[in-house]
Design a protein around this nucleic acid. Structure first.
Lengths: 239, 239
DNA sequence: CGGGAGGTTGACAATCGTCAATCAGAGTGG
DNA sequence: CCACTCTGATTGACGATTGTCAACCTCCCG
């Protein structure tokens, strides 16, 4: 669980032990439950043990923009917690299990065990890299490429999290949520998904299960290059 | 210079001393010079001593998306350098002075002096917060609000950097660059700036000097709330 | 004075949004 | 087992924000 950090940096047994011994409180949240709301004071970081979560902001007029999607093992709230006041909300998409860890304990551990500290820092930087790619995705790609890109990202991340295959997975979101990720409207997302299907880039058995027919073609359609995810393994060169 | 970090966290004399003693090499870059190019290996972090810089990504088709703008005192390349391979390019907008610091030296210092480490971490998180706001800005606001928002952000950040007043400053960018920040086209940026001027929200003596007539109204038009910048001082409640 | 970068403007096109209706599937209670 | 309901998916007609193309203008600088 907390060991996703080990993905980034070599951790020794003592490091892992220390991570597992962090004081924490586990909580089960129901679908649509909030982990933090924008403008709240924050005192805890948290780790998603199961389920999915999103970070979002509400703009004038009530529109919502999702700025990140998180899955099992992700450290969800380093961001907000160290800054004191949340600049965005975090909400779970599905019933989820979340571990809350006091901010001070995280900070102490980070500096007592440089390996852990580096891993957390690294994790934060990768988060930042994903944010940047999203800015580019939303700012400079059309709907077709935006959604193809998002589907590619999920494909790889779900696989790394052990939640699916690169070419087939359960999409954790509704079309409205995809719209909020991509800066589009649900209606347009629907049409675009249909278009991707018509081009045989993807297939949907149910509305949520995505099968990628030709990974490379979808990546090309989405101008997707996995570099920004800073994964150790390369993107699947498979058809 | 490097002391901008002191903005975030109390640093004692020894901390400051250590920062100033970091091994570094100063370099003068000409307008449009690159600090790093996407996909390059990175080994140094750097601090902008003077001038302006942007981070950007190029998407298929050659369009550019600017993901961040940096000014005097900003730590520009923690992001890329720790991840090994740059996921975006960094380019200076104007003739600039840049200090390069070996990545290892930064890492060592961060863990030897927790105050410094926390300050750097904090700085990284604030960067992330700005990224998130940009995602929301580009994804869910129309051109009018997007540009108003950007102008408000510059207003506060330039002021904090000691480069202008909240209500009057020199815009460091061309309209094309503003377009690349906001996911718009230069033509549309031009029209939108004219519109903002027509509403008396801003005045432009020259094409680059922005004067904000009524800060509050511009902030309202841009749905701007300075919370995401995590500044210690509040936004100017001035007219 | 010539060249170039950047700013301005107009006419037109297109991607994407809005509104609104309908449909499909899952869970619930009778 | 069958309404009933609710959420989410789908579709069509229409409108509008934003993009494209292209021309022209205005500085600034050597």
């Amino acid at each position: 669980m907390v060991r996703k950090l080990a993905y980034w940096v070599e951790l020794d047994a003592a490091d892992e032990e220390a991570l597992l011994n962090l004081p924490h409180r586990t909580k089960n949240l129901e679908r649509h439950g909030y982990i933090v709301r924008e403008r709240e004071q924050t005192t805890h970081s948290c780790v998603l043990l199961s389920g999915f979560a999103i970070r979002h902001k509400i703009v004038a007029g009530g529109a919502r923009q999702i700025v990140a999607v998180h899955m099992k093992g992700d450290i969800v709230d380093l961001q907000n917690s160290f800054l004191g006041v949340a600049d965005h909300s975090v909400q779970v998409l599905t019933d989820s299990e979340v571990a809350f860890i006091p901010r001070e304990a995280v900070k102490t551990l980070a500096f007592e065990r440089p390996n852990v500290g580096v891993a957390m820092w690294y994790d934060t930087l990768v988060d930042g890299s994903v944010f940047r790619e999203w800015i580019a995705n939303i700012g400079r790609r059309d709907a077709h490429a935006r959604i193809a890109h998002l589907l590619c990202e999920f494909s790889l991340r779900l696989k790394v999290a052990g939640l699916g295959e690169a070419t087939e997975y359960e999409l954790p979101m509704t079309q409205e949520q995809i719209a909020d990720c991509t800066g589009l409207t649900p209606v347009h997302v629907n049409r675009t998904l249909k278009a991707l299907e018509a081009e045989n880039l993807i297939t949907r058995r149910t509305s949520r299960s995505i099968t990628i027919g030709d990974w490379r073609k979808l990546a090309e359609a989405g101008d997707f290059d996995s570099n920004y995810l800073h994964l150790r393994a390369q993107e699947p060169a498979l058809g």
